[in-house]
Design a protein around this nucleic acid. Sequence first.
DNA 1: CATAGGATCGCCT
DNA 2: GGCGATCCTATGT
Length: 211
Amino acid sequence: MPLEHTYTPVPPHFFEQEDTLWLARWLLGKLLITRQEGLLTAVRITETEAYLGATDRACHAYGYRHTARTRTMYLPGGHAYVYLCYGMHHLFNIVTHRAGEPHAILLRAGEPAIGTALMQQRRGPQVPLHKLASGPGSLSKALGIHTGLNALPLAAPHFEIAEDAAPYLPDTAIGSSPRIGVSYAGTDALLPYRFFVKNHPTVSGPKTWGT
DNA sequence: CATAGGATCGCCT
DNA sequence: GGCGATCCTATGT
C-alpha cells in the first residue's frame, strides 16, 4: 500500500451510536473502501443522506415496517444495507443505531481515491473522473457494490470505512438540504437530512443549498 | 443549463 | 399490477 494511502479502519460497532444525523455529517471526507476479488477501490465521501427509522416517512422501515427488504435495517449499526432501485441500481447504505432501530445512511457520492483505473473500467471509458461516483447508483457501480453484499458487516474483506490524514472538514465546508427523490414522504421530504461537501464537483444535484 | 422520457425488475399491496 | 432513496440520452433554451 503506498504511503499516501495509509488509513485507519473504523470498527463496525462505531455505527451503533444513535445519532444518525451526526454520523451522516461525520462520514463526509472519510474513505469508503471496497475489495472485490482482491481488488481494492475507494472513494472519499462527499455526499450522504440520513434515514431516521420508524419516525421518518422517507425511510423504508417507517413505522417499524418489517418486510424481506427492510430486515437488514434492524441489524445493529455497522452493517451494509444494499437494495435494488428502479430495477437496475444497487444503492448502498450503512445501517446505524442499535439493533431494532432501523436507521441508515445512504452514500450518494464520493471522490475517487484508490483504484481509479478499475472504477473507470466499471463505469465506462467516457465517464469523466468527477462523475465516476457521483450519485448513489454510480457510486455503487464504481465500487463494485451489489445486492449480493447486503447485510454483510462493514468490515474487511468486502467493505471498510476509514480515516486518513486528510484535513478536517470545518462546518462551514458542509452544506445540507432536503433529501433527493423522496417526495412521497409528505412533510418529511422537507427535512434537511442530506449532507454534502459544499461546491465539490463530485456532489450530485444541488451543491450550495443550506449552510 | 433545464426538462422529459425510457430503461428494467424486485418488492409490496 | 404499480412503483421506486436513479441514470442516461435527447431535445430545447
